[in-house]
Design a protein around this nucleic acid. Structure first.
Length: 839
RNA sequence: GCGGACGUGGCGGAACCGGUAGACGCUGGAGACUUAAAAUCUUCUGCCCGUAAAGGGCGUGCGGGUUCAAAUCCCGCCGUCCGCACCA
């Protein structure tokens, strides 16, 4: 056997063999140490993209590496199969969302298999399968019965032309994506999960997640947003109807004497009460409803307020009155939906005060000496000492806040509280392609869960997408049912669950999938928590927080014995590619352009092309690279190798033709080494050391998910073997190299392994060991600096003491020339590394 | 607007905990092999001064600072990217 490595034949041969031998089916009864490696499961959009290939290759390297270390590995794959794109396809192409989704799954499964992933396909699942979502409905009922589910009104984006709810993604510049009509916010009764009950736990749990990136923990911490402060009621100077006061929350009780106004949310009950008698207020509130619900949109909107005729009394001064505004920047969802504004020390309040001509007082300063300085062009939010604040004067920010809270509690007008930015999780979606919420609304009995023996509540197949809106809601029969409790006529809930619910427990179902219940506790606990979870950083907050919540909720209900689902987390970067634009601004695919001198032109007609920036692969920018033709052309191993090379995995990876060519060359180089071996004797000590160093370094790199470093090490070893003269060591080195590349380029490794005379598959081989004694070199290179600048490097035996190193450095011609007779003032020696001579 | 990250040659990146900046790969140059091409191999490749060598200077987004020594630590800018609760 010789010549070129034939990836096509090798890919097929070994993929078939792994499948036949059920190599990667996880055995929960095994007594080996267990490892659960999981990548975020894909949405079946139609075809796999390079991002998937990168993600799954990384997980695969870990899975195969752990296997070689003797672990029993669970590495499953499934489909996050509910979601909007299937409904859009249904509308555009008149195809049933289910059919579309299942066809996509079939296509993507075949594509994924060609990557040669060590996956346990026997556990494959799709969330759109009633066999999955039926269990999800059972879990939802468990949560319901445990009091963790409730119903309340909440705002949605409403398209007044299509008469439908829009996702934030479907609101473009404040307009509906199809109708183009300005979007409004509208209230709807929806189901919520009490994630806020777990706010503290979820926050504290972050401390235990040592194998998560710090940035993700920090983002989650900020998202939960725990803050301590003062909650109190401002009494209304003249009460109206049932309102005698407004409750506010502040984290800056120390600035209470700097208050200039009180602002309430547009949908605050008091605002509504005002609007009943005040047509202008009603109009303002109406105006505030324009636009979408997304935070980015709300917070970048122009700050506007409406001054009501109400006034409140300052809690610490009965003669002090503050005006009450209805303001569009106050969120009903955070705190109490009302706040007091301190323009001197909060930038948003400052701008508001400027606009509405409200007083801007200084109640805090760097020191009491500057108490009379006016506030300048910006609010001063940094802590300092209280000034112009009566009994608080001179107290530091924190003490002043504590003092106000103390008095409030003593005098009974307020109390110290903890607030969270985190809001409860709204899970209702007014859409078809999702898990039906297993609830029946009965006019007599209220909201009644569907009895468990009637699960799953299956989506009806006969639906139409001719009109916008939820087909479940307008289905002629599906929603009309008898109440499970009283048997009277009732209405089935027609909202479906947020798809984040589907992905909040799939990792448990992978670990254990009995037919009659969501999972078997002891079976699941054999594998959980997931040892290494890998996915995009875009999931850093929502998905990961929801999955953590769900797991804790199950733990609270006594259904599982773990609190954190993912012990290790890694967030990988995106795959990017160049972009190009034609003269008319339309995007061109990189295949459609070529270089012409210093310019770019369209191949078809030579028209000039403007190269754009390197961006995330996306259909709209036409810069995607379809993995399948690459697998055809270069084989799975070259594609995998390229995905792991160059860029650190947490950063973006730029796809390039040159890069994949380079990867392909490496595959052939290893093949040549494996095929060219001849029996030889003799020891090559240098090479032996390098082999041991590489084994150590590659193992360490893989464990640290630094695949690019492992790749660089393997390149170096390959070059060293190529250069080395024939010897027994060299032959052994080739064997070791093949083992080391096995997790990354498994087909090549299997092929070489067989060629080297091994009967068993490399998939079942052990990871090579290294001798720590061989990692340390006897000689070191000493850097010699004069005044911090490198002047010479010297080879010296390891372990020289300071005096010897100094003497050696001073003996250098180059050093003497730099010193030019001057006497060193000081000499710094870092053993076995560096000598710095300071004059 | 709020929160989080990132910034090193022509390009992707490496550099342990403050100690030789540029490993490894790509691209490009020169050469070998070949009738030729591909493939492969050898070799050079941060910038500037120097014909070359020797040697020297500059250099990790920008401006300061700490230190014998800074890509790394501190302060202040600039730029890019990600998330923001109904995209998945």
């Amino acid at each position: 056997m010789s010549g070129r490595f034939d990836p096509d034949a090798a890919d097929r041969r070994w993929q078939a063999r792994w499948e036949e031998e059920r190599c990667f089916e996880a055995d929960s009864a095994s007594d080996k140490p267990k490892t659960y490696v999981l990548e975020m499961f894909p949405y079946p959009s139609g075809r796999i993209h390079m991002g998937h290939v990168r993600n799954y290759t990384m997980g695969d390297v870990i899975a195969r590496y752990r296997r070689m270390q003797g672990h029993e590995v669970l590495h499953p794959m499934g489909w996050d199969a509910f979601g909007m794109p299937a409904e859009n396809a249904a509308m555009e192409r008149k195809v049933h969302p289910g059919e579309w989704t299942l066809a996509n799954i079939r296509a993507m499964r075949e594509q994924l298999k060609r990557v040669g992933l060590a996956l346990d396909w026997s556990r494959e699942l799709a969330t759109c399968d009633p066999a999955y979502y039926g269990h999800e409905q059972a879990l939802f009922i468990d949560l319901f019965e445990a009091g963790l589910v409730y119903r309340k009104e909440s705002e949605v984006n409403w398209d007044p032309v299509d008469m439908t709810v829009l996702a934030n993604e479907q609101v473009i510049d404040g307009r509906g994506w199809r109708s183009g009509a300005p979007v409004e916010r509208r209230k709807l009764a929806q189901w919520f999960l009490k994630i806020t009950d777990f706010a503290d736990e979820l926050l504290e749990g972050l401390d235990s997640l040592d194998n998560w990136p710090d940035k993700v923990r920090l983002m989650q911490q900020n998202w939960i947003g725990k803050s301590r402060g003062l909650q109190f009621r401002f009494a209304l100077a003249e009460p109206i109807e049932d309102h005698a006061s407004v409750e506010v929350f502040t984290t800056r009780a120390d600035t209470i004497f700097g208050a200039s106004f009180v602002a309430i949310a547009a949908d605050h009950p008091l605002a509504r009460a005002v609007a009943e008698k005040d047509a202008e207020a009603a109009a303002f509130i109406e105006e505030c409803r324009a636009g979408g619900t997304s935070a980015a949109e709300l917070e970048t909107a122009e700050k506007k307020g409406y001054r009501t005729e109400l006034e409140v009394i300052h809690p610490l001064d009965p003669d002090w009155r503050l005006p009450v505004y209805i303001a569009n920047f106050v969120l009903m969802d955070y705190g109490t939906g009302a706040l007091f504004g301190v323009p001197g020390h909060d930038q948003r309040d400052y701008e508001f005060a400027h606009k509405y001509d409200l007083p801007i007082r200084r109640v805090m300063a760097a020191s009491t000496d500057v108490a009379s300085e006016p506030i300048g062009a910006e609010a001063e939010s940094a802590p300092g000492v209280a000034v112009n604040s009566r009994f608080l004067d001179g107290l530091a920010t924190e003490e002043a806040a504590a003092e106000v809270i103390r008095r409030a509690e003593e005098q009974g007008w307020g109390r110290g509280t903890v607030q969270y930015r985190l809001r409860d999780w709204g899970v209702s979606r007014q859409r078809y392609w999702g898990t039906p919420i297993p609830i029946v609304h009965c006019p007599k009995c209220g909201a009644v869960p569907v009895p468990r023996d009637q699960l799953p509540v299956v989506l009806p197949e006969d639906i139409d997408f001719d009109r916008p809106g939820n087909p479940l809601d307008r289905h002629p029969t599906w929603k009309h049912v008898d109440c499970p409790t009283c048997g009277g006529r009732a209405i089935r809930e027609t909202d479906t669950l947020d798809t984040f619910v589907d992905s909040s427990w799939y990792f448990i179902r992978f670990a254990s999938q009995p037919e009659d219940r969501p999972f078997d506790r002891s079976e699941a606990e054999k594998w959980l928590p997931v040892g290494q979870y890998i996915g995009g950083v875009e999931h850093a907050i929502l998905h990961l927080l929801y999955a953590r919540f769900w797991t804790r909720a199950l733990e609270h209900m006594g259904e599982i014995g773990i609190t954190e689902p993912f012990a290790g987390l890694f967030t990988q970067g995106m795959v990017t590619h160049e972009t190009y634009r034609a003269g008319d601004g339309s995007w061109l695919s990189p295949d459609e352009v070529r270089r012409d001198g210093d310019d770019w032109v369209r191949i078809e007609d030579g028209a000039p092309v403007t190269p754009g920036s390197v961006e995330k692969m996306s259909k709209s920018k036409r810069n995607t690279v379809d993995p399948e033709p690459m697998l055809d052309r270069y084989g799975a191993d070259a594609v995998r190798w390229f995905m792991l090379s160059d860029s650190p995995p947490e950063r973006d990876l730029k796809w390039s033709e040159a890069g994949i060519e380079g990867a392909s060359r490496f595959v052939q180089r290893v093949w040549r080494l494996a095929t060219a071996g001849k029996p030889a004797d003799g020891k090559d000590e240098m090479l032996e050391r390098q082999v041991h160093r590489t084994v150590a370094a590659v193992g360490e790199a893989i464990e640290g998910l630094q695949f690019n470093k492992a790749v660089a090490q393997l390149y170096e070893l390959t070059s060293a073997i190529e250069r080395a003269a024939p010897s027994a060591t060299r032959n052994e080195a080739v064997r070791t190299l093949v083992l080391l590349i096995a997790p990354m380029t498994p087909h090549l490794a299997e092929e070489c392994w067989a060629l080297l005379g091994n009967a068993r598959m490399i998939a079942d081989a052990g990871w090579p060991a290294f001798n720590p004694a061989l990692l340390v070199e006897g000689q070191v290179t000493l850097a010699v600096q004069v005044n911090g600048k490198l002047r010479d490097t010297l080879t010296a035996p390891r372990g020289l003491d300071r005096a010897e190193a100094e003497a050696l450095a001073l003996a250098s011609d180059k050093v003497q020339r730099q010193l030019a007779g001057a006497t060193p003032r000081k000499v710094i020696v870092v053993p076995d590394r560096l000598v710095n001579i300071v004059t």
